[in-house]
Amino acid sequence: MAKYILKRLLLAIPVVLGIVTIVFILMRIFSPNPAYLLLGQRASADRAAALTEHLGLNEPIWKQYIIYLKQMLTGDLGTSLFSQEPVLKELLSRMPATIELALFAVIIGSVVGIALGVICAVHQNSWLDRICQVGGLVGVSMPRFWLGFMLMLAFAVNLKWLPPSGRFNFLVRPTEITGFYIIDSIITGNWPALWSTLKYMLLPGFCIAIGSIGSIMRYTRSTMLETIRQDYIRTARAKGLSERVVILSHALKNAMIPIVTVIGMELGGLFSGSVLTETVFAWPGVGKYIVDGINNSDYAVVQGGCMLVALISVVMNLLVDLLYGTLDPRIRY
């Protein structure tokens, strides 16, 4: 087991390195010289050239690349051009916001998605099933940025039930301990802050969750349909078990194996920041940080951000694979 985990983590090195390399090259090919962005469009050519030189951007790309890799090995992901803060520190400070939102969305998505999927499979071809299938398809295919604006328009602008964007209200912000505001407000017993945090999370959370519900539901339905036709389900019924035990225990545990893969992939994608949703709702997470970095030609930010994204994906995949082992006794590492 430990050997397997170590092997997988070692295999992650070339993946992460590859992604860093690709991002490094792309940024230098497609992003404008950050000197002009820092100085403004009307900066004199002399000053821009001086700044370019100062930033080390006149060196050949391969030299810049080696310098960056050397820094990276010492745990230094560089400094943001704009905030002048270390990228690693900024990324870490944004992680809790992203993770909190992702967990919120995926928990809603999994609970609702699995429940609906099971119900649809048990009542295959009923009107409920049909509505859910169409709804799921709509949920999956709706563009998240558009859905985000629609939710904002409906619940924040017109109904005024929920705040339109951001993560907290300055007046009732919880004291930061872990950076996860829900946990922080519970630890400190700050109930108004908890309420406010949830209200801020609801719109972006649902914006993400609607897509997750759709895909998890459809996946659950199809694997459940396959599972409930298996011989061992007939055996379970022949034992006289109640339908509830047959479906929720005997069938669902078998169906969970592929479902966990989908949830894991979903979560991996979201942990690295739901770029569109975070941008639409001005959610101060990793996704928005990377988008801002791209807009500012902030090389170190984009490179560091993408490396983190890659790392998270690799770790999430590993976790899902390890989870298989606990779900399916036939899988051992």
């Binding site: 061992y232 055996t235 022949a238 545990k253 399916d328």
Partner: peptide
Amino acid sequence: MRAVRGGDISMIFQEPMTSLNPVFT
């Protein structure tokens, strides 16, 4: 009927390889 199934009347199936649930002991 559930009380009868597996109680007074029980059944053995043809396919031993697939008739047991793979994820339970």
